[in-house]
Design a protein around this nucleic acid. Structure first.
Lengths: 207, 207
DNA sequence: TACGAACGCGGACCCGGTCTGATTTCGTAC
DNA sequence: GTACGAAATCAGACCGGGTCCGCGTTCGTA
């Protein structure tokens, strides 16, 4: 039968209670001025329990950032299409639709997203490690690209691509965090994606 | 008349003792399996003293990585030269000469450098945070590029450039770590610098 | 209804990093 | 050469993130 399972419902509930408590505290006092123990206390769970739901403090706010499977997209592209074209198509699509990656995780209204962005951008440490999250992604992409390019070239391509996408995402975050409406931020996002891929394809010199 | 100063000689000595102890332990047991207290003990200093010489455990092995002042190079370039050309010139020069940034820090023979590379590449956490070190650099470069480009474009350019340089450096490290001789690694480095800037200038599509 | 598995618990523990206040060691002025 | 101030070092307490462990509790199921 397995409609939902009380057990799993409770887990989901706890997970959200933790995320909500964390976000509240972060918003009010800043990421660095909140301890994990406080979050656990506010969410009414033990610290150890918190860490069974979220592997690190960072993941409480960064959860799901940088989860696109670039390597997969490139590997699965239709024959004849260039890697760059495949990625462009993917992200153009993504930019056209509302923010997908968050549905699995957002307990509150869409302005919870905005709070998260603000928290991230407010803490340099957090921004930097959002950056670091892309590291694995980059390596995977480089591996796939190495199937059709020299290794060093593949590594360079992967680096440029992931760096560009990260920047586009950051720019989008910044717009959201500074209060731009979602609709207009989304429009700007499409333009940014185009710009990013144009630069990637044709180089910085041309203009 | 202040030839060297006993005090400063001792400091330098201590600093090297710490670095050497750390490197030894890292080489033998891996970065993650060595405790800061152990390093301090091996170097015969108090933990607190260690931290007056090196701000973090990471800095013991990453010290001086990513210290090039990209923004400064671009800002100080001769009039009429493009930012990319200025950077290319700088790094072409750098690649032509022996490894400069290490002279201030290398206690042992040049194979200490090799050990460091191996330690870094052996620990994913370290590699990732070497990555993160570039973060500030990127922002600074973006700021100076924004003086002649639209902000988003400047951010994208800076991202691509720093990512490429990081990759070149990583590739160089990898060659050193895998035993390539310094001379031949240096030659490959020059080629990589050229390749990186060619891709940056003309794009990934062209080939 | 009873039992095993999953879940959650508090609390001890580890590690990186900071702080404190006392103690030593050097440079220098007399 | 002695005495004094500054710099370096020290041991150890402390903090926060994160792991581990042994014990209870709660749910699913037979």
């Amino acid at each position: 039968m397995r409609v939902a399972g009380l057990r799993e419902r409770k887990k989901e509930q706890t997970r959200r209670r933790i995320a909500a408590a964390a976000l509240d505290l972060f918003r009010d006092r800043g990421y660095d001025n909140v301890t994990v123990s406080e979050i656990a206390e506010a969410a009414e769970v033990a610290k150890a329990t918190l860490f069974t739901y979220y592997p690190t403090k960072e993941s409480l706010v960064l959860g799901g950032v940088g989860d696109d499977d670039l390597a997969g997209i490139v590997a699965a592209r239709p024959p004849g299409q260039s890697p760059l074209a495949a990625l462009r198509a993917h992200f153009t699509d993504l930019a056209a639709n509302p923010v997908a990656p968050d549905d699995s995780d957002a307990p509150e209204g869409s302005d919870a997203l905005m709070v998260r962005m603000r928290v991230i951008l407010d803490s340099p440490a957090l921004s930097a490690s959002a950056n670091g999250l892309r590291y694995r992604q980059r390596r995977e992409l480089a591996d796939v690209l190495a199937r059709e390019h020299a290794p060093t070239e593949a590594a360079l391509m992967a680096a440029q691509i992931t760096a560009s996408l990260l920047t586009v995402q950051e720019t989008f975050f910044q717009r959201l965090a500074t209060g731009t409406t979602m609709a207009s931020a989304a429009r700007a996002l499409s333009a940014d994606v185009d710009l990013a891929f144009d630069l990637l394809e044709h180089g910085l010199a041309r203009d």
